[in-house]
Simulated assay, not measured.
Amino acid sequence: MDRARQADYDRSLNTLASHGIVPGTIVIDDKWQQDYATCRPDTEKWPDMAGWIRKRQDAGQQVLLWHLAWDTEGAPPEACIRDHTGQPVALDPESPAGRKLIQQAARSMIGELGPKGSK
C-alpha cells in the first residue's frame, strides 16, 4: 500500500527503461486513493495523477487503476450495508446514497483521471 506513490512508480519505470524494458500496461496498485469509496487520489502520494496518466498514455502505455469497489472507507453510513451492530461492512448499491457515491467515484476515477480502466 505504501508503494503506490508517483515517485516510486517513476523510479521503477525509469529503472526498467534503463534496461530497455518499457511496460505496455501499468497498474497503479492498492491505496493510490485518499479513501477507497471516493476514488479521489491521495495528493501526497500522487501530486498530479491525471497528468501522470496522460503522459504515460501519450507515450503509448496503458494505465489501469486498482479499485476496491466495496470498501466503506470514506463513505457515509447511509451509503453502506451494515452489520447487526450498525457497523458499515460494504457499499450498498441499492441505496440512493450508495448509488450516488459509486457513480461519483467512477466519474472521479475514470472520467477525471483518464485511465483506460480499473483492476
Rank of each mutant, 00 (worst) to 15 (best):
R3V: 11
R3Y: 10
R3C: 11
R3Q: 11
R3M: 11
A4F: 02
R5E: 12
D8A: 13
D8H: 13
Y9F: 15
Y9S: 12
D10R: 15
D10Q: 15
R11K: 13
L13D: 10
L13W: 08
N14L: 10
T15D: 04
L16W: 15
A17F: 11
S18T: 07
H19I: 02
G20N: 02
G20S: 03
G20I: 06
I21G: 00
I21D: 02
G24W: 01
G24S: 14
T25L: 15
I26W: 01
V27W: 03
W32Y: 07
Q33E: 11
D35T: 07
D35R: 07
D35H: 10
Y36G: 07
A37V: 06
A37L: 02
T38H: 01
T38K: 09
R40F: 00
R40H: 04
P41W: 01
D42H: 08
T43M: 06
E44N: 12
K45W: 04
W46C: 06
W46R: 07
P47E: 11
P47Q: 11
P47V: 10
D48H: 08
D48N: 13
G51Y: 05
G51F: 05
G51A: 04
I53T: 05
R54W: 02
R54N: 15
R56P: 04
Q57A: 14
Q57Y: 11
A59R: 12
A59T: 10
A59D: 14
Q61R: 14
V63N: 04
V63Q: 09
L65A: 04
L65E: 04
H67M: 14
H67C: 14
L68Q: 13
L68C: 11
L68D: 12
L68A: 12
W70A: 13
D71A: 11
D71N: 09
E73A: 09
E73D: 15
G74K: 10
P76R: 06
P77R: 15
P77N: 14
E78S: 14
A79K: 08
A79Q: 06
C80K: 03
I81H: 02
D83G: 06
T85A: 13
G86Q: 14
Q87E: 11
Q87T: 15
Q87D: 09
V89W: 02
A90Y: 01
L91V: 04
D92M: 05
D92W: 00
P93D: 06
E94C: 00
S95A: 02
P96C: 00
P96L: 00
A97R: 03
A97I: 02
G98R: 01
R99P: 00
L101Y: 03
I102L: 14
I102N: 10
I102K: 07
I102S: 08
Q103E: 13
Q104W: 05
A106M: 13
M109W: 05
M109N: 08
I110H: 02
G111P: 13
L113Q: 14
G114Y: 01
G114H: 06
G114D: 07
P115T: 05
G117K: 01
G117F: 00
K119C: 01
K119I: 06
